[in-house]
């Protein structure tokens, strides 16, 4: 089984472990991920506020390349990348004029018949049917599933059933033998857009998220977006200053947590790449009863 894969910048850099763990889990389940050759930036965070045409053409180029490569489905793990690619595809397919203009910009044909999968859709479609035979361990911990903004919104792109209170990650975690907690901040803003420019705001916003998760007894926080991860993981010193207390809950990508339950080693899943030590999450794991 082969599925296309669009990494985007984060999965090549700051969130390499997200990519690594996704590959590890896929491989375990017999799925081959094929990267789109010569992919370009999705345009997230800047393009769509500067130049509308560019913000459509950039993802369109990547999608056209995927078509050329013969990929009928691509998984886009990064929430921001998914949002941009899906928005671009939708805009082009809904308006012939945009299609014509975009094809001229990218100098390639665009049919739009590549299906885009969020990480949830990918797991649901390819991993879930076979997961039970590979899950050998029980995560055995309380997890706070954190969605942030772009995984759930806008509703017509992400196609979640309850965008104000999504449950997709919780389903995955239950499968992996964890106990998802009910908490208040799962779709609140982590301050992503201010990641570099206003770390003080990031500390304030992300701090509240961590605080609520901690108060409700989470052993780990599960994310599926590189921005969420870096803000919650990387900004702990600023958050500590802000909250005047130390919170040391590890933040795991959904694929890392799932990988752990499949008995994949911490190193293979990139758990050594985190700023907050992940040992606490790993130590909870027990063997799944037969």
């Amino acid at each position: 089984m082969k599925v296309g894969f669009y990494p985007g910048c984060s999965l090549e850099g700051s969130s390499k472990e997200y990519s690594k763990s996704l590959f590890a889990v896929s491989e375990k389940c017999g799925i081959t991920l094929e990267e789109i050759k010569d992919w370009s930036c999705c345009g997230a965070s800047a393009a769509h506020s500067l130049n509308h045409d560019l913000s459509i053409a950039l993802p369109a180029r990547t999608l056209a390349l995927a078509e050329k490569q013969g990929l009928s489905e691509i998984v886009i793990p990064c929430a921001a990348c998914y949002g941009r690619l899906a928005a671009s595809q939708q805009a082009i397919l809904n308006d012939k004029a945009i299609l014509e203009k975009t094809e001229k910009y990218i100098d390639m044909a665009f049919t739009g018949n590549v299906q885009l999968l969020t990480v949830f859709e990918f797991l649901q479609k390819y991993i879930f049917p076979v997961a039970d035979q590979y899950i050998v361990d029980k995560l055995n911990q309380k997890t706070a599933c954190y969605y942030g903004c772009l995984l759930a919104r806008p509703k017509d792109l992400t196609k979640l059933e309850r965008p104000e209170n999504p449950m997709e990650m919780e389903k995955v975690m239950e499968k992996a033998g964890a106990t998802p907690i009910d908490w208040a901040f799962k779709t609140e803003c982590c301050g992503a857009g201010f990641s570099m420019s206003r770390t003080d705001l990031v500390a304030k916003l992300s701090g509240r998220i961590l605080e609520d998760a901690a108060e409700r007894g989470a052993d780990s926080i599960i994310v599926a977006c590189p921005m969420c991860h870096s803000n919650l993981d990387l900004r702990r010193p600023e958050i500590k200053k802000q909250l005047k207390k130390d919170i040391n809950i590890p933040v795991l990508f959904i694929t890392q947590a799932l990988g752990l339950s499949m008995g994949i080693s911490a190193k293979e899943l990139g758990l050594d790449k985190h700023f907050v030590p992940t040992g606490k999450a790993v130590s909870c794991i027990v063997k799944k009863e037969a």
Partner: peptide
């Protein structure tokens, strides 16, 4: 924008 429960209060 949102209401959530915390320690018996509605935030």
């Amino acid at each position: 924008s949102r209401i959530y429960e915390k320690d018996g209060k509605l935030i």
